Computed example of a mutant assay.
Amino acid sequence: MLFDTHLHLVYPDRLRYPWLDDAPALNRPSLMSDYARAAHRLGITDVLHMEVDVAPAQIREETALVSDLMAERGSLLRGAISSCRPEEDGFADLLDWAQDQPAIKGFRRILHEMPDDLSTTPTFRDNVKRLSGTGLTFDLCVYPRQHGHAVALIDHCPDVQFVLDHCGVPDIAAGGFDAWAPGITEIAKRSNVVAKISGIVAYTDRDAWTLDDLRPYVAHVARQFGHDRLIWGSDSPVCNLGGGLETWVGATHALTVDWLPGDRAALYAGNAKRLWSL
């Protein structure tokens, strides 16, 4: 069974998503009811919602939406990773509020589509450091060219639990293994980071990729982090760009078919449940 640690939900009737105006392939509703129908067929039993970079004024409203969906009968949702703005002085107030929100399990600030130096300011780094001892995680979504900045942030916050999204966002379509792999090796040396094997089909030649295109990337992440520091996510609906949820789940099973049963179980669900005490 699978624990999906990276589901995006889009409810344009309740929230605003400014970035979707420039992403026509994704600019449509993505509802829990539609996802759940597919998830039940695929063996997905637990889900964390990943923030969708809503308009900053609506960050708390996004958590309210997830909380409402969690309360529905038979809901698969177990919590949320909230958006945040560590580059701003108001982060401390958001953190105080979040610690009273049972739904919130961690934070993410999108970095891969932002200026590379966003995470390098003292304000940003010190605000992320505030997560120390809270039990709240911080997701890192960074391109290979930003891996060095990620290492610096991690080293500044040794008591914060980090999650590296999407295998560190490799450029699989361009054959970017050599530009990506050293950063993964360096990040993996930090014991306070787990890697999320999630949705990398979106970084392939979307019309022509095969399992052999994905295999070296997943193998390198598993080798560097070890099977006890890996979690799984769909990145739905972004994974639709590379074939969809069903395709990614099938690829996950195929890529791990030779793993020991305990290692598969750890990736699929066990590590996530332990990481967030679920």
Score class of each variant (00 low, 15 high):
K189A: 15
K189Y: 12
R190G: 05
R190A: 00
R190F: 15
R190W: 02
R190C: 06
S191E: 15
S191D: 09
S191Y: 10
S191N: 14
S191Q: 15
N192R: 06
N192Y: 09
N192P: 07
N192W: 11
V193D: 02
V193R: 00
V193G: 04
V193N: 00
V193T: 01
V193K: 03
V194A: 06
V194M: 10
V194S: 13
A195F: 05
A195M: 03
A195P: 04
A195K: 01
A195L: 10
A195C: 02
K196T: 01
K196P: 04
I197S: 02
I197N: 05
I197Q: 08
I197V: 05
S198L: 08
S198H: 07
S198A: 12
S198N: 10
S198G: 00
G199V: 11
G199R: 05
G199Y: 05
G199D: 00
G199T: 08
I200M: 09
I200L: 01
I200F: 04
V201F: 03
V201Y: 03
A202F: 04
A202Y: 06
A202K: 11
A202N: 05
A202R: 00
A202H: 10
A202V: 06
A202Q: 02
Y203I: 04
Y203H: 09
Y203E: 11
Y203M: 13
Y203W: 07
T204V: 06
T204L: 04
T204R: 02
T204Q: 04
D205Q: 12
D205T: 05
D205L: 11
R206N: 03
R206G: 12
R206Q: 13
R206C: 03
D207W: 15
D207Q: 15
D207R: 13
D207N: 07
A208L: 14
A208F: 12
A208H: 15
W209N: 02
W209Q: 00
W209S: 06
W209H: 02
T210D: 03
T210N: 12
T210K: 09
T210F: 06
T210I: 11
T210P: 06
L211A: 08
L211C: 04
L211F: 09
L211Y: 06
L211P: 02
L211T: 10
D212N: 15
D212M: 09
D213C: 07
D213G: 04
D213V: 04
D213N: 07
D213R: 13
L214A: 09
L214R: 02
L214C: 06
L214V: 14
L214D: 04
R215F: 14
R215N: 09
R215D: 13
R215H: 14
P216R: 14
P216G: 05
P216D: 13
Y217E: 03
Y217W: 03
Y217N: 07
V218N: 08
V218K: 01
V218R: 05
A219C: 08
A219Y: 02
A219S: 13
A219L: 14
A219I: 11
H220I: 08
H220Y: 13
H220L: 12
V221I: 08
V221G: 03
V221Q: 02
V221D: 13
V221F: 11
V221H: 03
V221E: 03
V221Y: 00
V221T: 05
A222M: 14
A222C: 15
A222N: 01
A222P: 05
A222G: 11
R223C: 15
R223K: 12
R223H: 14
Q224S: 11
Q224R: 10
Q224N: 14
Q224M: 10
Q224I: 10
Q224E: 15
